[in-house]
């Protein structure tokens, strides 16, 4: 008997991948901004406010807080239960998904995700000093990476695994595009020193500073960073690399034609249009387009695998002759 993968299981694995990645990315963004604020010697709230903008949560934030101060933004993005994208809320959502697909995961997975959620909740609560915030975020990131490594080494590399990966890569590609938005768009208006700090920050948020030196070389330039973060085929978090990895996982799944089409057009756009010299507004529009295509890919996957409308056979056909597979 060969186990089939239920739509429900696939969907939960997919969201588990997305939520784990999202929590990690939010931690990266926050750690990076906290760092930048020091390096730029900034005391205003501009950087923190920009974090809200790039994660698309400025409006929701304004509903519950007056000013985007460091303290408010950190609280909103780490432990605020009313914010569905806060780190703690995201890890809780990951936990619920892990809890309901225990039969396709190594047994200790749920316990691991559960601990990750519980410990992040306690280590991120309260008014955190920069040092404690940095260490809590680092801890969370490392534990998520350990979990990814553990799953990679121990989980059956079958359909649920591929859905987990697809969720992870889609989320990662999306976040990388946001980090580019934050780190690169508008950088030309800054003085040279600030430009360097900002570009370095974008690379650091993706653990890519050392990789940049290795693959592109010094000095760090706007065009170089853009090319690297969008188009590198070897940087694990570049948009192109995420799309390529996603493509491989999707290729292992049945009935992938429709979703593959959208992935391929995303891939073509990345390969064929050189965005490295685009000016601010055009670059913004380009990144918007990438994000839209990521959204369309999500929809195609959801329509194909999770929420397809069943087309049932009419009663006139004999059930005995029904083929075992197929019918959608």
């Amino acid at each position: 008997m060969n186990r089939q993968t239920l739509s429900k299981t696939a969907e939960r694995a997919y969201w588990l991948g997305r939520y784990l990645e999202r929590a990690e990315n939010t931690a990266r963004l926050l750690a990076n901004e906290s760092d930048l604020a020091f390096e730029l010697g900034r005391s205003d709230d501009e950087g923190w406010h920009r974090l809200l903008t790039i994660t698309g949560s400025a409006d929701a934030f304004a509903d519950s807080y007056d000013v985007p101060s460091r303290r408010n933004v950190i609280k909103y993005m780490t432990t605020d239960a009313t914010n569905p994208s806060s780190i703690v809320a995201t890890l809780h959502a990951a936990r619920e998904n892990a809890r309901t697909i225990r039969e396709v995961m190594p047994v200790v997975t749920f316990e691991y995700v559960n601990d990750l959620w519980r410990e992040s909740k306690s280590s991120l609560s309260g008014n955190l000093s920069a040092r404690r915030l940095a260490s809590a975020l680092r801890e969370q990131r490392e534990r998520t990476e350990q979990l990814e490594g553990f799953l990679s080494a121990n989980m059956l590399h079958d359909a649920p695994w591929n859905f987990l990966r697809i969720g992870c890569f889609l989320e990662r590609a999306d976040m990388t595009s946001r980090i580019i938005d934050n780190g690169v768009v508008g950088v030309r208006q800054l003085d040279l020193v600030s430009q360097q700090v900002r570009l370095r920050g974008a690379l650091k948020a993706m653990t890519a500073l050392q990789n940049y030196s290795a693959e592109v070389g010094q000095p760090i330039s706007r065009a170089g960073v853009l090319k690297f973060l969008l188009g590198s085929t070897s940087l694990p978090r570049s948009v192109t690399r995420c799309v390529n990895s996603l493509r491989r996982s999707l290729g292992d799944l049945p009935r992938h034609d429709k979703a593959m089409k959208t992935v391929n057009s995303l891939r073509r756009k990345l390969a064929q249009e050189d965005a490295s010299e685009l000016a601010g507004p055009e670059l913004s529009a380009y990144i918007d387009e990438i994000q839209q295509m990521i959204g369309i890919t999500h929809n195609a996957i959801s329509d194909t695998y999770f929420h397809f409308k069943p087309r049932l056979r009419r009663a006139s056909r004999s059930p005995k002759k029904t083929a075992k597979k197929e019918i959608t």
Binding site: R3, T5, L6, S7, L312, P319, T322, K324, T328
Partner: peptide, 29 residues
């Protein structure tokens, strides 16, 4: 057993009065 663990919402009875489950392959009897 290598069997699927399903809830009621994963199953559907067709017009042919056969039972199917929703999977990533489509409906499977």
């Amino acid at each position: 057993m290598g069997a699927e663990l399903v809830e009621g919402s994963d199953l559907i009875v067709g017009h042919d009065d056969c039972v199917y489950m929703r999977t990533i392959e489509g409906l499977i009897r």
